[in-house]
Write a protein that binds this DNA or RNA. Structure first.
Lengths: 238, 238
DNA sequence: CGCGATTTGTGCGTGCGTTCACAAACGCAT
DNA sequence: ATGCGTTTGTGAACGCACGCACAAATCGCG
């Protein structure tokens, strides 16, 4: 029947798309790319859910928010679904990223292939330390943070990545916002204060480690109850 | 005053601590350390909540799950609260970490100071590529992945960090689990299959970028149509 | 000693997210 | 064309989490 895309040129806007769903779409997209590479033309919700590591009902509800792009009795068209999710996530537009803080982590991020492969490109590198400035990483040269506003405007950069020490992060965030950046990915372990309209996502490795630590701790202390049926691995070498 | 643990001074066990609360405790801890360094002896829920970037009621409810360590009319004792949270998170025990995959990201993680400062120590580095093996990073030498089980047992390592390409991640996870590791932090963009009893947390930079991309996309599209009534959008950080 | 100011701890309403379960829709074989 | 097995899309129930608002508790001061 008419399950064709009604109008792909009209940009889909989903103001009420649940945040939890948005957070899973990239995972679905990754799973779909994997399935496409394996030659699958279609995939069932069960199959895709397994590949993405989620419940199939949840996946169907997530996808239903984007519209009805599945075929009952068959499944989802892999290529079509990829197109749709990429459209919803705004990945059709190539986005440029400014990376601030060229230390240990910054170097790694500058060379990280996961950006380019998903439609992002690191367009500029910045640091405040004179020792770093001028260094060449890949095709880019590290510039001084004071040039940020100028470069952001010239390159049309909309996303900033902060990989500085915590003490410098807030000032960098202010400079990014002042330069017109409206999305920030923050690797510094601190809370950023930004005006409304600017989105901040935080990645803190120490936090992740501490959450794992809690579960390790809990597992070590609850070693008394009998496990259901799955004899788990060795419980923490004392 | 719901249910106080009788062994409050001993090792606290909180099997029913909400996962959302656990995820915030490290953030509170970081904020508390900052306050302690500024010389604060006590802090109100409002003050701590601001420093941690959360709602004060939420913070109070989170802390109430750990017991009553606040004083009405005064606030929380900073040093005491640090001790309590560290005890709950199991940070009193020094935990050793094995880092697998010494590429771009692996190098950065190996030199990341955020581990040691929070009671974790990278105790061993592994890679499968012969070109990496033997390289010296800090005080450690990169070893071949085949030595993993032996080193994990000898060093008493309980946490594994995977920074390999996606295609190698599952096999590395299997090897880690086989060696007795019960917690894994996965930077590879893929779903890991592990037996129950093993905790996996995933950090995917590409996913974070795509979530930001969605919000950029949405902001760009909702700017064009006539603002219906509420142009004020909450800065849904996090 | 008592009172007011302050702040915690929490009961409660609300909204979001997840899961179950099933009707509707589809392809295919007969 | 019809019926059957398969799969989607979704209504409904459930549980968790969040935030408000307030009583209880504590301190400081007159």
């Amino acid at each position: 029947m008419s399950q064709q895309r009604t109008d792909s040129s009209a940009s889909p806007v989903f103001p009420d798309l649940p945040e939890a769903t948005v957070a899973r779409l990239p995972e679905y997209l990754r799973a779909l790319h994997g399935l496409a590479q394996e030659g699958h033309d279609t995939v069932s919700s069960e199959g895709l859910a397994t590949a993405a590591g989620v419940n199939s009902a949840k996946l169907r509800k997530d996808l239903s928010h984007l519209g009805s792009y599945g075929t009952r009795g068959v499944g989802y068209d892999v290529a079509l679904l990829i197109t749709q999710i990429e459209a919803v996530l705004g990945l059709t537009k190539h986005r440029k990223v400014a990376l601030v803080g060229i230390g240990n982590l910054g170097h790694a991020l500058a060379g990280y292939g996961g950006f380019a492969s998903r439609g992002f490109s690191v367009a500029a590198l910045f640091d405040a330390e004179r020792s770093q400035i001028g260094e060449r990483i890949g095709t880019l040269v590290v510039r001084h943070i004071d040039e940020l506003a100028e470069v952001v405007a010239a390159e049309g950069i909309s996303i900033g990545v902060i990989a500085t020490p915590a003490r410098a992060a807030q000032q960098v965030a202010d400079q990014l916002v002042g330069a017109g950046v409206t999305s920030i990915l923050n690797f510094a372990p601190c809370v950023l204060n930004v005006p409304s309209g600017v989105d901040v996502r935080k990645v803190d490795l120490a936090v992740e480690m501490q959450i794992l630590s809690f579960h390790e701790h809990r597992k070590a202390l609850t070693a008394l109850p009998v496990p259901p049926e799955q004899p788990a691995g060795e419980a923490t070498g004392s």
